[in-house]
Write a protein that binds this DNA or RNA. Structure first.
Length: 506
DNA sequence: TGGTATT
């Protein structure tokens, strides 16, 4: 009985928060004190109930109607298994709603379609509510997030699109404070299966006029995910560490340990006087990759995220979950020599090895990341060769360390830094995606966003992009260091991003 | 010289 009461209390609370009818209810009352409610503990009095029977929430019931009054209204759709008016636990006051379970699932569906919002009971000013109780499903597993809608599309438009796949209980366009659509919506079906069917049929199926890519149909965030998202946003605004690193458990701890290890390496390098932008660049890449891989968010870290093509010599290695032996030349799948040079020599063309000699062990993820850097560098010998020319002297800068746990959130956030912190970069290699762009600028500070402009029609990079730092000094340092930097046949153009309202050509 | 969004 205790369990039964708890269940009812939960269901009631759920429905109270769900319903838009203004029915007040405080959690806790269990309406089991009535003549129609069967005691599930006594087999002799329990009618048989379908295994897939649906518990219905009935709302907008006049408070003078009790179970025996309501029974005739609902009985015409089938045999009632249980009907319970919700009452305040302490005062016994009728709360204006009830739970109803038919013996057969089909009866519930019939009652819902016949009654829900179809008639208004005497004395009420809103129509009766007959719908599955929230306790019937978590809610989240049948609620969809729909993205890439046309901003002109209405609730009805979306309903029409989704109604073929099941019964839609809710359909809401997300709107900003001004009432304009954000181009996305929530659609809630009666069942998980319906929601899944809609995903299967509609996700990516079409591109709405004016939308930048094809329709997105996926399960909506769970409460937990929503909380995480909020935390991330908050942390991002405050420039704090990323809370995502904490719940990742063992992986997060491992990634953090890795980064600490790498930070220690970098510190020893700095003390040895070897620090130069190139070393910082390579180290930053290594950190990125290690962090990304450990979090399982990017199995092939050096694959451009946009553009579709892969730089020559880069084979997008997957980091094996069970490490296999790798040699100094790097990953399985990497040609032993790229561009005619041993990869390691291509990286450190200036003869400076910023890392202490190590004997590579096969199981060391650091080695894997290191190999990844080598591989990446091997594909861009020109870039790396030029670095030593670009910086005959150590430049007047101390590359800012990436702080622990910072990378994921920073990678994911898409926002400008303050004025003077945002760079426009032109003449990027065709193969560069957001990730590569960011890695290139990480040595100069805390990169809060990176974006390579991609032609939507061809999905090809337009060879320019944006990088935002969290402070103007980093941006200036990056300009000094990287403007005119030669990659292959091109030289990077690195300038402050033109403010939106300003009209000055550089 | 940008922006795939979660009641």
């Amino acid at each position: 009985m205790y369990i039964k009461m708890a269940t009812l209390a939960n269901g009631q609370a759920d429905n109270a928060s769900l319903s838009t009818n203004g029915l007040g209810s405080s959690p806790g009352s269990a309406g089991h004190m009535n003549g129609l409610s069967h005691s599930p503990g006594n087999p002799s009095t329990i009618p048989m109930k379908d295994h897939d029977a649906i518990k219905l929430f009935i709302g907008q019931i006049p408070r003078n109607l009790d179970e025996k009054d309501l029974k005739p209204l609902f009985e015409e759709f089938g045999k009632i298994y249980e009907l319970t008016v919700l009452k305040d636990r302490f005062t016994g006051m009728h709360k204006g709603c009830a739970f109803l379970t038919y013996c057969e699932r089909e009866s519930a569906l019939k009652a819902q379609s016949a009654l829900h919002e179809q008639k208004t009971l005497p004395g009420m000013n809103r129509p009766i509510q007959v719908k599955p109780a929230d306790s019937e499903s978590r809610g989240e597993d049948r609620k969809l997030f729909v993205g890439m809608l046309n901003k002109q599309q209405s609730e009805d438009d979306v309903r029409r699109l989704f109604e073929a796949f099941g019964n839609i209980e809710e359909c809401t366009i997300l709107r900003g404070p001004d009432g304009n659509s954000k181009g996305c919506a929530f659609v809630k079906y009666s069942s998980h299966a319906e929601a899944q069917a809609a995903i299967n049929a509609l996700h990516g199926s079409q591109t709405m006029p004016g939308a930048s890519s094809s329709l997105v149909v996926k399960f909506a965030d769970t409460d937990k995910e929503r909380t995480m998202r909020r935390m991330q946003q908050m942390a991002g605004q405050m420039g704090m560490f990323n809370p995502m690193a904490i719940p990742f458990g063992a992986y997060g701890a491992y990634a953090q340990a890795l980064m600490q290890q790498q930070a220690a390496l970098m510190a020893s390098v700095a003390q040895g006087g070897y620090l130069n932008p190139m070393a910082a660049f390579a180290a930053a890449q290594m950190q990125q990759m290690a962090a990304l891989n450990m979090n399982g968010l990017a199995a092939a870290p050096m694959t451009p995220t946009s553009g579709g093509s892969t730089p020559p010599g880069i084979t997008a290695p997957a980091v094996p979950s069970i490490p296999s032996p790798i040699g100094v030349n790097g990953f399985t799948g990497l040609p032993p020599q790229a561009n005619g040079q041993p990869a390691a020599e291509a990286v450190f063309a200036n003869g400076i090895h910023p890392y202490p000699a190590q004997s590579p062990t096969a199981a060391d993820p650091l080695q894997q990341a290191y190999a990844g850097v080598q591989q990446y560098a091997a594909a861009y010998p020109a870039a790396y060769g030029q670095i030593s020319q670009a910086f005959p002297q150590p430049p007047p800068m101390i590359p800012q360390q990436q702080r622990e746990g910072e990378s994921q959130q920073e990678v994911l956030s898409k926002r400008d830094g303050p004025e003077g912190c945002n760079l426009f970069i032109y003449h990027l290699p065709q193969e560069f995606g957001d990730a590569e762009l960011m890695q290139m600028f990480l040595p100069f500070g805390n990169v809060i966003s990176s974006k390579v402009f991609v032609d939507r029609a061809t999905n090809q990079s337009k060879c320019f992009g944006f990088v935002s730092f969290d402070n103007p000094a980093s941006a200036q340092t990056a300009i000094q260091a990287m403007n005119g930097f030669q990659i292959g046949m091109k030289r990077l153009k690195v300038q402050l991003k033109r403010p939106k309202d300003a009209n000055r050509p550089y």
